[in-house]
């Protein structure tokens, strides 16, 4: 495999995790436009542990995920007071706060960036991406996930059938933050250089776009969306300078014709049925 395609695949793997981090929170009807913030936290914590403390990458990633999870829960509580667009704006503010924090946080390089992490292989990135994707896919068949969807569909009714909506929503933030942190840790150890600019608003938007394009009601949508987001601009190369515009047009078309994204539950059920019939 050429290094070019290896690079694209690594980007897809990292983006799958970023998209999943948005998806997990979105399942409870909360849109986060600040997941690049959690990614940054994971990125810097993991890099500190491997570069300064000489930890192995895996435990560093786990600690980074746990750190972000705690911060996610802390963010999740005030988020309970906000809904819809206002919540989105608040998370956007959180992302920008984290970015500007690392810009001035000189122990980790500040605006000059930070390096010194060991490099991880493409395979390692995909072990994490596939592992988390599998985990989410399994969880989607659990009662826990049904409870999250109940909160999404009708929060009040969910409470009135016995679901602890507070715990569910805050938990989703914690889980999503942890996954974003793993994406960040892998990003840092793939590019072996990070700077606050890597974790800007655009990054948060990319995560959201991958989820929306791929399908916002199933975890597998994150995979489809991430692949599209990375590969489409490559496939659209014949459009030369206009490929981003073409991408924007496609995004709007998808939203207009299939607002739930390319993959959704009925489509997955249909695919499963076909496979069973064939077998």
């Amino acid at each position: 495999m050429s290094t070019y395609y290896a690079g694209l695949l690594a980007d897809i793997g990292i983006l799958v995790l970023g998209a999943l981090s948005v998806y997990i929170i979105l399942v409870t009807n909360q849109l986060s436009l600040g997941n690049a913030g959690f990614m940054a936290i994971g990125s810097y914590v993991a890099s500190f542990l491997t570069a300064e403390q000489h930890w192995a990458v895996t435990p560093a990633l786990i600690v980074a995920a746990l750190t972000a999870c705690v911060i996610g829960v802390i963010v999740g509580f005030p988020a309970l007071r906000l809904k819809g667009i206002y919540l989105a704006i608040a998370t956007l503010g959180f992302g920008e706060m984290v970015r500007s924090f690392f810009l001035v946080f000189t122990p980790m390089g500040g605006s000059g960036g930070y390096r010194g992490m060991p490099h991880v292989s493409l395979g390692y990135i995909w072990i994490w991406a596939a592992g988390i994707l599998l985990l989410v896919t399994l969880l989607e068949r659990s009662r826990l996930w049904l409870e999250m969807r109940a909160v999404h569909d009708d929060e009040r009714a969910a409470g009135l059938v016995g679901i602890n909506t507070t715990l569910t929503k805050v938990g989703a933030f914690g889980f999503g933050a942890a996954v974003a942190a793993i994406a960040g840790g892998l990003f840092a150890h793939h590019y072996i250089y990070i700077e606050p600019g890597n974790f800007d608003f655009q990054r948060s938007i990319d995560f959201v776009l991958a989820v929306i394009l791929g399908g916002s009601t199933v975890g597998a949508g994150a995979l489809v969306g991430a692949a599209l987001l990375v590969l489409l601009p490559e496939w659209l190369r014949f459009l030369a300078d206009w490929r981003l515009a073409a991408f924007g047009v496609m995004l709007i078309l998808v939203l207009l014709t299939r607002p739930q994204g390319i993959l959704d539950r009925p489509l997955l059920a249909l695919l499963r049925l076909r496979r069973n019939r064939a077998a």
Binding site: A150, H152, D153, D154, R156, A158, G159, L160, V161, T165
Partner: peptide, 23 residues
């Protein structure tokens, strides 16, 4: 909170049916 009351053993239906849209 509502969910604890349900868990204690009180369940209800609604005047205008409230089912979960995706389920």
């Amino acid at each position: 909170p509502a969910y604890r009351i349900v868990r204690a053993g009180v369940a209800r239906t609604f005047q205008n049916i409230r089912l979960f849209g995706s389920m």
